[in-house]
Write a protein that binds this DNA or RNA. Structure first.
Lengths: 349, 349
DNA sequence: GTGAAAGCGCTAACAG
DNA sequence: CTGTTAGCGCTTTCAC
C-alpha cells in the first residue's frame, strides 16, 4: 500500500529497534549481523504499516536513482517506438530500473533536444537511451554523454557512442534468398529514394545475394520511389511493365509491398501464383492483414531496446565499458517472417 | 550542460553569496529582497558553472517530484498507446512535468498491477495516469488512489475515479450520418462480438441514427464477428449476400473495413461506386493506405492523454477537485475523417 | 538585503 | 548484534 506518510523511522519505532537496523534488514546488507528475531520483527512491522521506501531519499543518499532516461522520436507515428519502449521497459524492470520517457519530434531543434537531455540529467537518471524511429546517423545533443548513453536504431555522426542497429543487409539477403529458394530467377527490387542506411544496405544485400547465386545482381531491376503505399504502387507498375517481368518482388518495406499488391491486382496478377512478394519491417497491421499474408523481414526493435538497456545497465553497474563497445555498432539480426506471399514461379509457357 | 558535480553551494561560492541567496534568485522567490547586482552575479555564476538543480533533492525537500506516472497497457501492440503517451507527454511538459512510464500487459495479474503502481508510489510521483488500450471497465489496483489519479480510455468498476473516454455513440452517429447524407438508405453494420462499451454504444448510435432519419433502425442488418480483418471479411460476405444488399456499410473498426474491402473486391463490387464503406479508429496505416482511402471515425487518443494530464496536474496543484469530476466520465468527441470510400449509391436499375 | 541552520527520508561509517 | 550520527542537495524559517 505504501502509505506515503510512513517512513523508516516509524518502522523502527514499531519494531522497537533503530533505523539502522531497519535499513539493514530491509536492504539485506551483507555485513550486518542481525538476529533472526529482530529481522522478523522489522519485516512484519514494515509489512504492517505498509512501508515502502522513499526512492528519492534513497537516491539522494546513494547517488543512484535506478531510473533510465529514454528519449524517443515520434512515439506516436510508428509502432516501432512502441516496440523499442517495450523492450527497454521489460529489460529495465527485470533489473530493477524504471524508465523516464521524453518524446522528441524528429524535426526538433538542437537546443530543444539538449533541453530534453538536460531534463533527464536534472533528474539524475543513471543512464540514457537515445532512440530514433528509423535507422540513421544522428548528431546527438552535446550534453549527452555526461552520463552513460546508448543509441538505439541510430549511430552518431562524429562522436563515438555505443549503438545498436538492425542488420539491414542481412535482412535483405534473407528476403532475396527466400525468393531464390522458391525457384525465382527474375527478381526485382522496389527501393526507397531516401538516402538512409537502409536504402543502401538493402540494395547491397539484394545485389550481392543474386550475384552469389550466379545471377547478374548488378543489372537486376530496381525501381525507386517514396517508401509509402503510393510509391510502392508506382514502382511496382513500372517494374511489372518491364519487358522481362520479374516473377519475384522484394520491397523496401511493407507499405511499398502493399502498393505492389494493388498494382498486381490491377494487372490481373495473382499473388503468389503469378507474382511472389517479400516485404520488410513486419508491420503487423499490414503484413499479417494483407491477403495473402505478406512474407517479410522483421526489424528487431524490441530486441534493440532490450539489448541497449541491458548494456546500459551493465555499464552503470560497472560490468562493461561502453567506450570499448562504442568502436563498432552492435548489429542485430532481421529474421524472415514467412507468410503466404511467396510460391514457386509459374512454369514458363 | 548540468555538470553533475556542481551544486548550489558551488554557485554560492563562485558568486560570493550564501546558498540561500542563490536559491532565492534561481527560484524567483517572491518575498526575497535581493539587489539586482546580486541577482546578476548569481545568475552568471550559475550559467558559468553549468549549474542545473538536483531535482531529487528539490523533490525531497518540497514533497513534489514534478513526475507523473503513466501505466499503460500493451504499449507496443497498437499505435493507440503511442498517441496517448504523446498527448500526455506534451501536456505534461507544457506544465513542467515529466512522465514515468510503466508498461503492463493487458493480461497482467492484480498483484503485478499493484506492484507497478507501488513502484510509481515509491518514486513519489505526484499523480498517476492509468491507461488502457481500448475503452472498457477496469478493476483498478487497490493502491491506486493513494495519489491523484485519472483513467484514460477506461472507467473503473466499483470505485469512482476521474476518467476520460471516447464518445463511441457520437462517432457511430457521425459515421452513419455521412452515409445517410450521401443518399444511402440500405445501410448495414459490421459489428464486433466482444462485450465492450464500444460494441454496445456504436450499435446504439447506428440504430438511433437510422431511426431518427425515418428508417427502421431496429431491423437494420447487423453482422457480428471478431473485430479483425478476417472477421470483417466474413461478416461482409454474409452482409453482401443478403437479398436486399446494403449499399452502405458501417464497420466496427478499420480492420474489419479492410476485410470488407476484400469481400467487395471478390464480389466485383467497386468502392465507393457500388458500395460505400465507413470505418472506425482512423488507424493511419490502414485507413489512409487502403484504396480508395477509407472514410472513418477518429478515436481521440491524443486528446484523452492530454486532457487527463491537464486535469491531473490541475488536481495536483489544487486547481480542481478530482472527486467532483469522478461522478461522470468525461466524454471526448470522435470526429469523422473523410476520405474516398463514400459516394452516392448507384441509381436503382 | 542577506545568511545560518534545520530538516526532507534515507544509508553507511563508526561506536559500542 | 545494534545504535548514533553525519551527510546526500536543496528550500525555507527566522534572525541579523
Amino acid at each position: 500500500m505504501s502509505n506515503k506518510n510512513i517512513g523508516i523511522k516509524d518502522v523502527a519505532v514499531a519494531a522497537g529497534v533503530s533505523v539502522t537496523t531497519v535499513s539493514h534488514v530491509l536492504n539485506d546488507v551483507s555485513y550486518a549481523r542481525i538476529s533472526p528475531d529482530t529481522r522478523d520483527k522489522v519485516k512484519s512491522a514494515a509489512e504492517q504499516l505498509g512501508y515502502g521506501p522513499n526512492r528519492l531519499a534513497q537516491a539522494l543518499r546513494t547517488q543512484r536513482t535506478g531510473m533510465l532516461g529514454l528519449v524517443s522520436e515520434d512515439i506516436a507515428t510508428t509502432p516501432h517506438a512502441g516496440r523499442i519502449i517495450l523492450g527497454a521497459d521489460e529489460a529495465a524492470r527485470a533489473r530493477g530500473y524504471n524508465l523516464m520517457i521524453i518524446n522528441t519530434s524528429g524535426s526538433a531543434s538542437a537546443e530543444s533536444r539538449e533541453a530534453d537531455v538536460e531534463a533527464l540529467l536534472e533528474r539524475r537518471v543513471d543512464g540514457i537511451l537515445y532512440a530514433t524511429m528509423y535507422h540513421r546517423d544522428v548528431q546527438v545533443p552535446a550534453n549527452l554523454g555526461n552520463v552513460p548513453t546508448v543509441l538505439v536504431d541510430a549511430v552518431s555522426t562524429g562522436r563515438s557512442l555505443t549503438a545498436v542497429v538492425p542488420d539491414e543487409e542481412g535482412g535483405a539477403r534473407a528476403a532475396v534468398a527466400s525468393l531464390l529458394a522458391a525457384g525465382h530467377t527474375r527478381i526485382g527490387f522496389l527501393n526507397n529514394t531516401d538516402d538512409v542506411p537502409a536504402t543502401r544496405d538493402r540494395l547491397r544485400g539484394f545485389r550481392a545475394t543474386l550475384t552469389e547465386a550466379g545471377l547478374d545482381g548488378e543489372t537486376a531491376p530496381v525501381e525507386s520511389e517514396l517508401s509509402e503505399v503510393p510509391g510502392g504502387y508506382e514502382a511496382a507498375r513500372r517494374m511489372l511493365d518491364r519487358p522481362d517481368r520479374p516473377t519475384g518482388l522484394f520491397c523496401y518495406n511493407d507499405r511499398m509491398a502493399m502498393g505492389a499488391y494493388r498494382a498486381a491486382a490491377e494487372l490481373g496478377l495473382a499473388i503468389p501464383d503469378d507474382l511472389s512478394v517479400v516485404g520488410f519491417d513486419d508491420q503487423q497491421l499490414i503484413a499479417a492483414n494483407l491477403h495473402p499474408g505478406l512474407t517479410t523481414v522483421a526489424l528487431p526493435h524490441y530486441e534493440m531496446g532490450a539489448w541497449a538497456t541491458d548494456s546500459l545497465i551493465d555499464a552503470i553497474e560497472g560490468k562493461t565499458d561502453l567506450a570499448l563497445m562504442a568502436l563498432h555498432p552492435t548489429i542485430l539480426d532481421c529474421p524472415l517472417v514467412t507468410r503466404e506471399s511467396v510460391a514457386a514461379p509459374a512454369p514458363p509457357r
